[in-house]
Amino acid sequence: MNQQAQEKLTIAGIDYQSRLIIGSGKYKDFQQNLAALEASGAEIITVAIRRVNMGQNSDEPNLLEVISPDKYTLLPNTAGCYNADDAVRTCRMARELLEGHKLVKLEVLGDQKTLYPNVTETLLAAETLVKDGFDVMVYTSDDPLIAKRLEEIGCVAVMPLGAPIGSGLGIRNPHNIRLILENAKVPIIVDAGVGTASDASIAMELGCDGVLMNTAIAEAKNPLLMASAMKKAVQSGREAFLAGRMPRRLYASASSPIDGTFF
């Protein structure tokens, strides 16, 4: 890679080599999750905050014992929250659980079928969390005005969906992602919708700063191989973006010279 392509992703003042963020849901077990994490090269991994199981399985391993907060940046999410209050509570619990950790992924959902974000509650929660000192990476719709508003509130990264969570439908509205990127001063990370490697490349070729995915790796027939594919897809998409693609033409343009033919 040339120097330009090695340029780092900076979120809340911390530099990351990898532009891929992965989830920790839907894996067969923690070991498979850890192996996928290593294969993906990701340095940031999302986790959910849930009630402990009491009485039963109290000796089962804890996620944090397998995926070490010393080695990886954990990104606690507010998945499952349908209002701002629950999301704020979840972030405060996560901060306590992770000993003062400030980086969180805010997502406030609006509908169980589409898991589409509830944008009004997301805005409210973002304001509260930023005032409370959190570094907020925020999942939102692909509306350019809302993305800008979330940046103005003080979110450290804005993460529009490419398609509904877990759908694997790819980047359904690349034009909106482009519009968001045009005005952004914080990292824009496509969160949700990626189904396969080319989807991740498309997001990066649009100029996104990173991609966050869970199901595309966890539900692949071979999650480790897909994790490796995603690592390359994100890198190649980034390099292609930096390289600057050729213009699209309606007709052909010969690659071999016309001059000098002997026939």
Binding site: G23, S24, G25, K26, Y27, F30, N33, T46, V47, A48, I49, R50, R51, V52, M54, N62, L63, L64, L74, P76, N77, A79, M93, A94, L97, L98, I165, G166, M213, N214, T215, A218
Partner: peptide, 10 residues
């Protein structure tokens, strides 16, 4: 009381 932990999630 609510007692929570970190678990797998996306």
């Amino acid at each position: 009381l609510e007692i929570v932990q970190a678990i797998g999630g996306g």
